[in-house]
Write a protein that binds this DNA or RNA. Structure first.
Lengths: 268, 268
DNA sequence: CCTGTTTATAGTCAGAGTGACTATTAAAGG
DNA sequence: CCTTTAATAGTCACTCTGACTATAAACAGG
């Protein structure tokens, strides 16, 4: 703990504390290699709703450790990148989508995982992100890689992913579930134009509960800015039933009052 | 972006991607120094309520950059520490509290700040934490340092703190404000036994709004597990008024339904 | 001792929001 | 044409909340 002890009191994150053998208090050149280096990576929990089931984008690992296991997409933060930038770059690379499209996707920092032994080889601190995307085709295998290296996997079927990715995925699911309650985030899972039935399916899928159709409709339409009607537009709902009106995501981001999960216990 | 490009597809945080000049696909020893090192630090937004004003613990910097400026306490994550462990260690060092006491304080990861230029000297990625502590005396100047190196500062009087600490503090305030709405977190600002008036003062201080006394009481007592009455105990409220009953924090952590901020707009 | 002030506590009342439910409309399929 | 399916419209009771009034218990000052 010598490095931090030397730096104690110099405020948060003071690299001067890391200079080798620093004894004086005056300014001195610091040596970036005087402390054990950390690798900083991003991991992405890319979630989507496909056919009433929550899916996550996984990559099959080709190398040890965890060769052959599924893992969340991710990679290194480059020297001139923020974690957010790195996450969006990785997202574009893994999904094969155009960068302009990726820029419009919902991407949000989840939390940072820093347990010393989360990677058996070296010290890796990973900033995890959650991305919410509408239903889209299987990720294109761009760059001449294996055709099925990246796949959408139902979250219920994810077993023994690499590293601590099971924990990250669980945290992402919990975060998304509670954010649906008090934000307008559900539209991030929908295409640009969607029906209220599709929006309700997002809630039902993420929460795993059925919602009353008329009540859901009343609540969503009563929240100003949640959705905006597309004038005159309607979509046949899979062939059956009355055609539903189409809506777009509105400008609101928060839900006041919130749309609480049914049967949610009084304490968590 | 060569390092990440080389590692693309190997799953999140694969240090193999960092080995210098890696061309083959088979296993090879990795070199921790093949990529530009990142320093990983923690920054702490330690908040407390003193006399109806939200305060944050700040440290006066002794070195450049930002010498003489106030900064959030923090420091390096050591090679065998998680960020959480480092945050609690720094918290104990900066407040001078016993480690056992620090272990009981509420500490929660806020988010990670990773802009490339947030520290002018080198690449520093900082995991920020929010700590909520009850009102306590001025931090002891342990270790023979300056007597007033660490101070409680009203958040409204924090001007031009070092690095991006203004942003971190703003994020912490916003997070705490919204967590008061849907969690039982407010008790973390209170001593072990407190009156409902003190608990209400926490909400009023963090939110900056007045709350109706009887309605607040009704809501808190109607939430199972939020607070537990201390049998027979009462405390004189600063000399004036009827003595108030004492309560302890209950086992609940979530508020269902939430206690929403008054006059909170329909969209944020 | 009385009175005004302060804070805690008890209770009332109307309106908003929600859960549960019924009814109607508009499409597809046999 | 009739059934099925899903969207849409509407009702009703209950809960929760905001606003408000009233009472109780302490202290300060005359």
């Amino acid at each position: 703990m010598s490095a931090a002890a030397a730096g104690r009191g110099d405020g948060g994150g003071d690299p001067d504390a890391a200079r080798a053998g620093g004894t004086g208090t005056g300014p001195a050149p610091y040596d970036p290699y005087a402390f054990e280096p950390f690798a900083v990576t991003v991991d992405l929990a890319v979630l989507t709703v496909r056919g009433g089931v929550l899916h996550v984008l996984l990559i099959r690992r080709g190398q040890e450790p965890y060769a052959g296991a599924w893992a969340l997409p991710g990679g290194f933060v480059l020297p001139r990148e923020s974690a957010e930038t790195a996450a969006r770059r990785e997202l574009a690379e893994e999904t094969g989508l155009a960068p302009s499209l990726v820029d419009s996707l919902h991407l949000e920092q989840l939390r940072t995982y820093s347990e010393p032994d989360r990677d058996p080889r070296m010290r890796v601190v990973s900033v995890a992100f959650t991305a919410l995307v509408p239903d889209m085709p299987e990720p294109a295998a761009e760059g001449g890689g294996d055709a099925d290296r990246a796949r959408w996997v139902p979250v219920g079927e994810v077993t023994q992913p690499a590293f601590d990715h099971a924990r990250i995925l669980a945290d992402a699911r919990e975060r998304v579930g509670s954010k649906l309650e008090y934000t307008c985030l559900a539209t991030a899972f929908c295409p640009p134009e969607f029906t209220l039935g599709e929006l309700r399916a997002v809630y039902e899928t993420v929460w795993g509960t059925a919602l009353d159709r008329p009540n859901f409709r009343r609540k969503v339409l009563a929240t100003p800015g949640f959705v905006e009607a597309v004038p005159g537009a309607a979509r046949l709902t899979g062939g059956r039933g009355k055609p539903a009106a189409l809506y777009r995501a509105g400008p609101a981001t928060a839900l006041h009052p919130p749309l609480l999960r049914p049967t949610e216990g009084p304490a968590r």
